[in-house]
Every structure is written in C-alpha cells, then in structure tokens.
C-alpha cells in the first residue's frame, strides 16, 4: 500500500519531535517504504470478524489502594534535571496555548 514520500517522513519526524537532516529524510523514506510494504501483509489475514488483542494476558480490574506512599524528595526529583530553578524543572520557553 504505502509509497512513503520524503514529505511524509518529514511530517512523521515533526510529530515525533525528531529534527532529522536532509540526508536522513532520503535514507528513511526508502527504508520506511520497504518496511511498511512488508508489514502491510498483516492485512491479508486480519479479517473483520477477528477481535484485536491488546494485552497478552487477559487480566481485568487491577486496582491499587488509595494509600499514600512516600514521594521522592524535591532534590531527588530534580537530581537528573538538565536545568532547575526554585525547586522546579527549568525548561526553554514553551510555545503555544496557555495552560
């Protein structure tokens, strides 16, 4: 089915937050095309009457008690942060909607 274009790869990369290079666009377009053609064969046997399986083991209703467990301390929480300030994770300016 697919013949995946360079533009589509660029779109996927943007959705996935990957700043791919021009060379990668060419490489990935070719490789994704081959892979997607190959995996599309799942459609050959996946008929409408077959229910999908999302979980290998059929469990239901696994709940946790509403009991507080110790949290990490602020220092521990921030220990691996690339940048922190005033007990918070410091991140570059956020574009977009106000929360």
């Amino acid at each position: 089915m697919p013949s995946i274009s360079r533009d589509e790869v660029a779109h996927l990369a943007r959705l996935a937050r990957l700043a791919v290079t021009d060379d990668e666009l060419d490489l990935f377009a070719g490789q994704l095309d081959v892979i997607l053609q190959s995996v599309a064969t799942v459609g050959d046997i996946a008929t409408a009457d077959i229910p999908p399986t999302s979980h290998a083991v059929p469990l239901t209703n696994v709940f946790r008690e509403d009991v507080v467990r110790p949290s990490l301390g602020q220092q521990q929480a921030l220990a691996g942060a690339p940048a922190a300030e005033d007990g918070r994770f410091r991140v570059p300016r956020i574009l977009g909607e106000e929360a």
Binding site: E8, A16, Q31
Partner: peptide
Amino acid sequence: SAEEVMSLTREAGFGPEVKRRIMIGTY
C-alpha cells in the same frame, strides 16, 4: 523553544534504528 530543544535532543540522542522505529510507530 522547548519544542525545538526537544527535537534537537531527540535527533542527537537517538540512533538511526530507534528513529526508524519511532517513525514507523507514529505512522
């Protein structure tokens, strides 16, 4: 922006096989 830094970091931090699979999965 945060979005640009995310994209640059993921581009530099992930190898080609990981990027390939992320894009297949996204698709």
